[in-house]
Design a protein around this nucleic acid. Structure first.
Lengths: 252, 252
DNA sequence: TCGACTTTGTGCGTCCGTTCACAAGGGCTT
DNA sequence: AAGCCCTTGTGAACGGACGCACAAAGTCGA
């Protein structure tokens, strides 16, 4: 890290908070909706409602990009769309490689949301020789052996890892070695990467588990309110004190 | 260590921070890995490394569940697995309905990560009559018209919305009206729900856009010496400099 | 031209999450 | 049995995010 200097206030604050960055795609999408409906101007209140956030938060987020609004009027939709898109790098063409063409990789390859926003699926890669050559969304699956070659040829810097957990780290290492510096990881393992490489994780099972946690709380509280309506009492088969019980695997 | 009264962490303990809750599935998965390898005890350092988090954070997270470690030794893997699983509600069976059996819904229905952790796909629902009856992972797709019926019969409280954006809110409303109180939303729209209903959003396109933002930054810093790349040929519909007119700040 | 109205942009208090650093506590060796 | 050493659990400092509330700044009508 040569740039140990934290930030350089170039023009308008170049240091955009991470939380704001995470919401910019949301704003961009909402703005596109307004643009499609022919709306020329939106207030922070309207846009915030469409994006599902607080209006003050929206204004503060946008203020990090610059002063693009007009007091008393609101924001010019087209102008703001362009500014947000530029900030997000959506004016560029981003070639993306998807590694792992299983159920998820298949769905991602067919998912329109990617290709319609500046991302272009440059290649699909899978380790299974039986899958090589298979056409997915008009693109032929290629061998994992050609991974470095593909990344180099297409100048790929963003990759999607949709492999099983067991292969994820090795694939990740090869991606990084080949020059990829941004990874979207769907495998349920924490990828280890050198500094300078960004990893974002999408953990489908965890999301459900988080919901289940809150769901359990709701059910417990509503169950406590009712005297005896226990339709689902505690599991009879569960060990009362699991620390004592030997590891009986296959719990899942 | 003779009592298991930790069922009820003190008045304060009931409120587990949201950030901690979001990491519990991670810990649970890492712990399962240790258990599968026959490890009986892990230190916070080892578990934190496996989960990809700071060890102090891990200890604080676990401390919210109770005092399940042994100083000088670490944590009993099996005991901790059970405690985390119980806290997450993984000891229960959670029937889940997936609405929208497109590419994504298809992949989710086949995704093993769901079914292997206490979640059971109770039904697949799609609005397309042509899809009704189609078998996905051994389960027949059912008509959207039967949604309320299905939810009631299977006692579903968790649903996955994998519909197009245009249908998401209406589906959401019907889900909530039918008794669903937790929703995992893959549609790129912010769902509006009454209080008491939890929504978690998984926005695949946004994740890539966030990566692209940082990627752009990296490329800009490495290409800082180059001449202007701003002369990007904007699309015909897009204003090259949209806000020239409305801004005359000279004021005299 | 002027005043009233509307909406942006932001200063500030508050809260949540992260991390450091260390005392408390338990096992292990002698 | 006693002391050493290890790891947990947590107090406290820190920083970032959020939201209120308001001044600044622009528009619109008279």
């Amino acid at each position: 890290m040569s740039t140990s200097r934290v930030d350089r206030p170039l023009g308008r604050g170049r240091g955009i908070p991470e939380a704001t960055v995470a919401r910019l795609p949301l704003y961009h999408r909402s703005l596109m909706g307004f643009a499609d409906r022919g709306v020329a101007t939106v207030s922070s209140e309207e846009l915030a409602a469409a994006a599902g956030v607080n209006s003050a938060k929206l204004r503060k987020d946008l203020s990090h990009l610059g002063s693009y609004g007009t007091r008393g009027v609101g924001y010019d939709v087209d102008y703001l769309v362009y500014q947000v898109a530029r900030e997000l790098g959506l004016t560029q063409d981003w070639p993306v490689v998807i590694v792992g063409v299983g159920n998820l990789g298949h769905a991602l390859a067919n998912y329109g949301g990617f290709t319609s926003r500046g991302f272009r699926i440059a290649a699909l890669v899978d380790s299974d020789p039986a899958r090589t050559g298979e056409l997915v969304n008009g693109l032929a699956v290629q061998s994992l052996g050609r991974l470095e070659e593909i990344i180099d040829e297409a100048d790929v810097s963003i990759a999607v890892v949709a492999t099983p957990a067991s292969a994820a780290q090795e694939v990740c290492d090869r991606l990084v070695a080949a020059g990829v510096t941004s990874i979207l990881n769907f495998a349920p393992v924490p990828l280890q990467v050198p500094s300078g490489v960004d990893v974002r994780k999408v953990d489908l099972a965890s999301e459900l588990q988080i919901l289940a946690f809150h769901e359990l709380r709701k059910q417990m509280s509503s169950l406590a309110a009712l005297p005896q309506l226990a339709a689902h009492p505690a599991r009879p088969g569960h060990p009362a004190h699991p620390a004592l019980a030997p590891r009986s695997e296959a719990t899942g």
